[in-house]
Amino acid sequence: MAAWQDSAFSTMTTDRATATVTATAPETGSTVDPYRGSGAGDFLLAAPAPERRVPMQLSPMDRRRLDLHAALTTAGIPPLPGDLEAIEALCLLDDRTNATVQRWITSTP
Rank of each mutant, 00 (worst) to 15 (best):
T14Y: 12
T24F: 09
L58S: 12
P109A: 14
P48Q: 08
G29R: 14
A71W: 02
Y35F: 03
G76F: 03
S38E: 05
D83V: 01
A17E: 15
N98M: 06
D42K: 05
C91F: 10
W104T: 11
A99Q: 08
G82P: 04
Y35D: 04
R96P: 02
A75Y: 03
V21Q: 13
D67W: 04
M12W: 07
L92S: 13
R16I: 07
L66Q: 15
G37T: 01
S30D: 12
E85K: 07
P81K: 06
A46C: 02
Q57E: 05
L44W: 05
E85P: 10
L44T: 09
P34E: 00
T106W: 04
I105P: 00
P60V: 09
L84Y: 10
P50K: 06
G41P: 10
N98Y: 06
L68V: 00
T28D: 13
L93N: 14
D62V: 15
M56C: 09
T24R: 13
Q57K: 14
D33G: 02
A17F: 06
T28A: 13
G41Q: 06
A8M: 09
G76N: 01
D94V: 03
P81R: 00
L68M: 08
S10C: 11
W4I: 12
S107Q: 12
P26F: 13
